[in-house]
Structures are given as structure tokens and as C-alpha cells.
Design a protein around this nucleic acid. Sequence first.
DNA 1: GCGCGTAGCTTACCATCGGTAGGTTACTTG
DNA 2: CAAGTAACCTACCGATGGTAAGCTACGCGC
Lengths: 198, 198
Amino acid sequence: MPRADRERQMMSVAEEVFAERGYVAASMDEIAERVGVSKPMLYEYFGSKEGLLVACIRQARAELLRVTSQAAVDAVNPEDMLRNGLVAYFQFISDHRRSWALLCSETAVVGPSATEEIEAVRQQQTDLISSTMALYVPQPPLDLTAGAEVIVGGCERLALWCQRHPETSPADAAELVMRLIWSGMRSLLDDQPSPGQG
Amino acid sequence: MPRADRERQMMSVAEEVFAERGYVAASMDEIAERVGVSKPMLYEYFGSKEGLLVACIRQARAELLRVTSQAAVDAVNPEDMLRNGLVAYFQFISDHRRSWALLCSETAVVGPSATEEIEAVRQQQTDLISSTMALYVPQPPLDLTAGAEVIVGGCERLALWCQRHPETSPADAAELVMRLIWSGMRSLLDDQPSPGQG
DNA sequence: GCGCGTAGCTTACCATCGGTAGGTTACTTG
DNA sequence: CAAGTAACCTACCGATGGTAAGCTACGCGC
């Protein structure tokens, strides 16, 4: 089997095993066995267990950026941008629970490079939010980036909550976030940096 | 050395090593060595590596609940309650960076019981928020608990952001969160469940 | 057809680390 | 002083991440 195909297959199996057992409990031996290949092949292609995880995360990250930024460009004002992006985010999560578990439920514990990779996902979404919002304000205040952090973190937790309340649709979740933060967000956007109001 | 003292010492060292190396990279041998004791003692007192982590988390959790709920009772209206609680939270984090890394930066990856323990911290804060807010509304809507999730998740991310922007004080962070969410939160509180408006 | 480089793959191994069995020391208590 | 026990240790096991060395088969220049 050619390398590219084998790599895709390995990542698919790895995602599955990581999601089933959790990163630490997942063993490279088991992944190799399920792929139907020997362990050194995994190391040949991904370097390490963490490298394999990083590859999985990176793939999911690209997909997440694609769907959320696409959703944003389909809107014409900041409110719709944010709402559409939120819907796309919650939709992505409900479509890719396995991938999402990798993005959201695993952290610093796994090692430096995977941690960076997971942080990069959040960074990516934070940047997307603050930069699209900044389109509508001449001099974006620092608070805008901090506000974007709050949104990203809040959505992660809300997504977990939604898993426990399956009757909540992606649109419901997005609407709740909008109701909670839109008024405050708009005031951040309107709030030009003024003397004495750092 | 009596058991209780030894346990405290072990937990202190463990917290240190976990924070330095991350949970996975931290080895029980190293913790034992730094304590100046042999490895089986750690297992005698905490059962397992994960048990040791759980003990550390549990201690930090109790402390966090103490300071945040104390802050809340010192207020007289919901807005001040939320703000005071937020200030206490961000203050706790800046006071206990090491403990906080354990609470926030480590997740599902470590194993079932530690994961539960970490989730319990968030659950505790979510409950605290939604129950204190619910004091002010006869029939708390479901959205209130979801809203509390958003706040908890948002604050976690914001706290990380604050670490990268040390000029932001706990009060600044709390104020930002209040400006972002208070208006929306108040509307959730006012929003009595009415027919056709789930 | 034939050497030959190399992509894809394997067996067999090592080192580390979580966890345990079993024993020793030393202090308390009847 | 005997007996029990709390605190502690040495020496080991099994699993798992990671590696060394080699095998097989295909493509390619001659």
C-alpha cells in the first residue's frame, strides 16, 4: 500500500482508538494491530505516539477552520457572522464527536507538541472571531481579543453541556450564546478606546 | 514522620512535579525521590498515580469553592454576587498558578477518576453560579444552567489569556466578563419560561 | 536478464515506569 | 519484655513507548 493511503488509514484508526480509550490508555500496539501492520510502521510515518496525535488534531483543525470561516463569509453583518460561525462550530462538533474529543478533552497532559497543537485550535478560532469582528471597528480594543477568548472557552463548555442535553440543537446552542453575549459584544465593538477608560 | 504530615508533604511535592513536567511526564520515582521516601510509600497512601493527582485536585477544589462562595455571600444583589465571585476566581488563579494548572490544563487524558475530579470542579462552579443566580428568579429556566456553563468555560480561557497579559488584574478580568455577559445574563434572569418560548 | 537502490514491512529487542510482594526497623502498649 | 503496628525499604514484575537490523519485492538503468 502506498504511503499516503497508509497514513490516512493509520490516522483514521488512531482517531478511533484515541477516542475510545483516551490518549494515554490507547497503546501503539493496539493501533498497529487494528491497522493490520506492525508497530515500527507507525513510528516510521509519525515519529512518535504524540506525533500521531498531532497529525490527527491538525487534520481536525483544518476542517474546523474551513467550516467556520465559510459560515462567516456567508453573512453580511457582524451579528450574523458570529451567529453563523457559532452554528457551524456546534454543528461541526455534533458531526465529529470523535475528532472533537481529541480537540477538547485532551490537554497539557499529553506533552508539549500536542499541547501546542490543541492550543493552536483555540487560537485559530479566537483569531477568526476577533479578526472578523474587528472588520467592523476602526481601532479594535484589546478587550476584543479577550472577549473572543471568553467566547471560545464558553462554547467549549457549552458543547459538552449539549452532549448531556441532546435535545439542544446546534442552532439552539448558538442562539443561547448570542443572547448571552451579543449585547455585551456590541458594546465592546462600539466602545472606542477613550482616555481614562483603558 | 506521622502519616498526616507525610501525606501533606507528598501532595505538595506532587503538585510541584505535576506542574513542572505535566502529569504524564511526571514519574512516581521522581516524586518519591524529592520527598525523600521510597515509591511504595506513595502507593501506600494514595493507591496510584492517579489517586495522588485526585488528592491534589480535590484539595484545590475545596479551596476554590471556599473563596468564591465566600465572595458571593458578601454581596447583596445578583450583579455584585457574580462580579465578586468572578474577582475571587481570577484572584485564586493568580494566587495558585500551580494548583490551577492541575485543575485546568489536564483532562480526560489522565484516566477516568481524575477526569471526573476535574469535571467536578467545573460542575461545582457551574452549580454555584446557577444556584445563586436562581435565588433571584422564581422558576429558573434551563438556559440558566447552560449560561453558567458558558461563564465557567469562558473564564477558564480568559484566565489563560490573562497569564499572557499580566497587566490584566483579576478585577479587570472580572469586569470584562461582566461587561460581556451581564446584560445577556440579566435577560436570562428576567426571561420567565413562557409558552412557545423554550 | 541482472544488479541495485529503495519503499514497505517484520521480528526481536531495550528502557522506563506504574505498580507490588515481602521484609525490616522502631515505637507504643499491655 | 513480648506483641502489635506504623513507617519504611529493597527487589522485583509486566506493560508499553520506542528502536535496531534485516527481509521482500518492485522499478530501473544497463
